[in-house]
Amino acid sequence: MGFDDLRSILLSERETGKLLQIAPDIFDRTHAEIAELLKKVYAIEDPLSDEARALIEETIAMKETMHELFAIRSRKILALALMHAEGNYYDREEVKRMIPAEHGMFDRVAAGLEECQGVLLHNAKQPLVPVPPAVSAGMDVLEDEGDAAYEEVPAAAEGPGPSSPPPLSAAPTLTPPYMLVRVLGDMDSFMGVDGRIYTLLKGDIVTLPERNASVLSDRNIVVALPLPTCK
């Protein structure tokens, strides 16, 4: 899944108000491609080179495009769930175009809307619901007359239920090691191998990706500092 392919899918999704058919593994393949790009970055001897910068910029562009695609499709799915809960007409073919994780979201949101409508609009008896995470395990929730109590859930029972969809497989996250340094002189902004933009001024004490710090140290722009230790 290259950037051009992902961008094309995003543009098509933007241009229509309906949910489009996409490959079920599109997000998995995008994560895998990002991991491959980062491996190439780490293999470059000079992480501040134009080649490394271009790869990092492509990685950032792919992440932003993937997030925007998710946001656009999620808004469409939420609108479909609302129409379903309200009993209004909606295109069933759009539901068929959802990938598995999206279909799970649609089902849970629609069910939640219908349950809330029953309680608030039709005065239905409120079902027992799990204790919210903010409530400590074992804490009793008092029941006022006419209101339903929360059902106490033991701490051991926390976590996704058996009907929860399994998480999508994803490429391993690659995190570069970091180094604490003191900056010896001002320098222009640059992009680190971790995808972040760094603007360094003389006297700054910062943590930088180890590969970037090593290159800057060789050029007498920064000096490595010992990391503080706990006593």
Rank of each mutant, 00 (worst) to 15 (best):
L208E: 01
C230L: 11
M187R: 09
G104W: 11
G146I: 02
H67T: 15
A71Y: 09
Y150N: 01
G159T: 00
I60F: 02
C116L: 15
A101V: 09
P130W: 02
P226Y: 04
L113P: 03
L225S: 06
A110G: 00
P127A: 01
G87R: 08
V95H: 06
L121P: 07
P226C: 03
A155R: 12
K63Q: 14
A149N: 15
E64R: 10
Y178P: 00
P172T: 03
E115V: 05
I205V: 13
K63M: 12
E51W: 07
R108L: 14
S217R: 09
E51K: 12
M62I: 09
P228K: 08
P165A: 07
G87Q: 07
R211K: 15
I9F: 02
E64M: 10
E94G: 02
D140T: 12
L37Y: 01
P24K: 07
I72W: 03
K18M: 07
L200K: 04
P127D: 07
Y42Q: 09
V183Q: 08
L82T: 13
Y90P: 03
V181C: 03
R53G: 04
N123M: 04
E57C: 06
D144S: 14
V206D: 07
G2K: 12
M187Y: 07
S169I: 15
A110T: 05
R219W: 02
A171E: 00
P160L: 14
R97K: 13
L113C: 04
G104I: 02
R14N: 07
N123E: 03
Y42D: 09
A157V: 06
L19W: 00
N220Y: 09
V223G: 01
V119E: 07
L20M: 15
L48Q: 06
T30M: 00
G118V: 06
H84V: 08
A61F: 00
M66E: 10
C116W: 10
A35N: 11
L200Y: 04
M1F: 02
S74P: 02
L201V: 11
G2P: 07
V206T: 09
K18G: 13
G195L: 03
E15P: 11
P127Y: 03
P162V: 12
D46G: 08
I44A: 06
V41A: 04
D28Y: 12
I99Y: 03
P127L: 00
S136D: 13
L82E: 13
D186W: 02
E45S: 12
R75Y: 08
R97G: 01
L121S: 08
R92L: 13
K40F: 02
C116D: 14
T207L: 13
I26M: 13
K40A: 12
A149I: 11
P226Q: 11
L37M: 02
R182Q: 12
L78Q: 11
A85W: 00
A54T: 14
D25N: 15
Y178L: 12
P209A: 00
L20F: 04
V222K: 01
I221R: 10
M179S: 08
